[in-house]
Nucleic acid binder design. Structure first.
Lengths: 202, 202
DNA sequence: AAGCTGTGACTGACCGGTCAGTCAGCGGGT
DNA sequence: ACCCGCTGACTGACCGGTCAGTCACAGCTT
């Protein structure tokens, strides 16, 4: 056998626990679920959760950081491209909606349990959360500088409005009971940009 | 004594408990605080909380319903007036921001613990929450009908974007450590309307 | 190739603390 | 002398986190 044989699929219990936690947190909420629920869902012994993670909190934090870092990076990469600010915003909205389409449970957990939890994880992860807001604000600022956007509102305010609108659409989907169709996903991206950039006025 | 004498200030312990609960929920969060904290804050015996409320949950539900009903009513009344849709939206945003200015703790609790709690109170109070969204959507629909607004996005989508932006601004204030100045309060109302109605495009 | 040993991933019974909710009774007003 | 608003010690369930122990396996020795 070589040093890294990879003959068998290799269970990777840590990943198993993380994935199970997403499902359990999404289903019952972080506070309502038990560590035993995570272990059961992962088909793993209770104690193994504590072998890989210091605490229940750390499981959620890991989940959040993994995903949020990707988003922050995407926002930065988009901004570096040679694109109209409006197109950049469309790409960012598209990425976020696509993240939800790809893994609704994970996005639900991140939004409900971290991004909006002003008394627990939200406070803890504020700096990382702000990184994303700042990135969006930079895109808007670029748009203002190039003359594409009007200079009526501060970039960071516009970023808030943009991100708030995106998150509210996501929240609507999270609260909805039926699955969301492909049409809604596609439409949402354009509708957000149309609303925030074009405005409602006729 | 008459039926409602009001000779002495009347302690009204129920109100005392409700007001104390707002402070405690805002400070530590609903899940992190103990019923004993509420009783202590109110200067009242532990058991009295259970004299007036069936459960800890019911305390929060009462708080939410009291305030949310007022908001839904305001939205409806605004819509009945002879005003441009844009002005109606400005009034609604103004009311929400003013609610925060008047009692930040209460708004924080309502937003963080109910409006955005997809796994607990949010689910329970979904019908009431939707009443507000629907009211805003009706204002937008009126604007489209009168030709004031373009017909590019469904009214309920526009309502989501509007309310999402408002809530995100509020969230920013909630997460902020320093107090918010009067200038910010006044400016926010106009900035929201400028962003959502006017749009960013130059 | 058979035995021996060290390693660490993995297990799950258990513990100690915490807390929502109960209830027996007190005391001031009428 | 009877309410009844009010009290707060108490209880029982629950749950996060611990830790003593198991076992599969890799590598060494003979």
């Amino acid at each position: 056998m070589a040093t890294t044989p990879a003959k068998a699929p290799a269970p990777d219990k840590r990943r198993l626990i993380l994935d199970a936690a997403v499902r359990v947190f999404a289903r019952r909420g972080f506070n309502q679920c038990r560590v035993a629920d995570i272990a059961d869902e992962a088909g793993v012994a209770y104690g193994l959760v504590y072998h890989y993670f210091r605490s229940k909190d750390q499981v959620l934090s890991t989940l959040f950081e993994e995903r949020w870092n990707v988003m922050v990076e995407v926002i930065e990469q988009v901004d570096e491209q040679e694109l109209a600010a409006r197109e950049k915003l469309r790409t960012v909205a598209g990425f976020i909606f696509e993240s939800y389409r790809h893994d609704p449970d994970l996005m639900k957990v991140i939004i409900v349990e971290v991004t909006r939890a002003a008394n627990s994880f939200g406070r803890t992860h504020l700096p990382e959360i702000r990184l994303a807001y700042d990135g969006i604000a930079r895109i808007v600022a670029g748009g203002v500088q190039s003359g594409e956007f009007r200079d009526v509102v501060t970039p960071s305010f516009a970023a808030m409005a943009f991100y708030g609108a995106v998150e509210q659409v996501l929240t609507g989907w999270i609260f909805a009971d039926e699955a969301i169709g492909a049409v809604e996903f596609e439409g949402a991206k354009d509708a957000i940009v149309e609303t925030i950039c074009g405005g409602l006025n006729g």
